[in-house]
Design a protein around this nucleic acid. Structure first.
Length: 109
DNA sequence: GGTGTGACCAGCT
DNA sequence: AAGCTGGCCACAC
């Protein structure tokens, strides 16, 4: 992790999110040592499409499991569809059983 | 090196 | 209950 920019660290963590699990912007920021930087994580996701590697950005949601970033995918349904492909249920942009699906890098990594 | 920009968050109105 | 405000901080220009 040495020599990596904040962005690159964010990408590295997001790539570690297991299939069928999700995490929050805040949890990633906390794991990277700057808890107040949740917005930066979101911004990193915004730029993630020009990253050289694939970033499963759909596995990152806000603190309560709401799909706030769905408009930044191909269309407003794409993010939800990707998650449902992984067995995650979503109703009204809200992940069902969010607490069970939640994956915290600072505990599990 | 100041300024603008956010896919956030908590607290207030 | 829904919307606004200010704080937050890494990045690009």
């Amino acid at each position: 992790m040495e020599g990596l920019s904040f962005f690159e660290k964010v990408y590295a963590v997001v790539r570690e999110i297991p299939y069928g699990r999700v995490t929050s912007y805040r949890a990633i920021a906390r794991y990277l040592g700057s808890e107040g930087s949740a917005r930066m994580v979101g911004w990193a996701m915004n730029q993630s499409h020009n990253a050289t590697v694939d970033i499963p950005a759909h596995r990152v949601v806000n603190r309560i499991g709401l799909l706030t970033g769905k408009h930044h995918f191909g269309g407003p349904q794409v993010m939800q569809q990707l998650l449902e492909n992984e067995g995650i249920i979503i109703i009204g942009d809200q992940i069902i059983n969010f607490e069970e699906r939640f994956w915290d890098p600072s505990k599990e990594l």
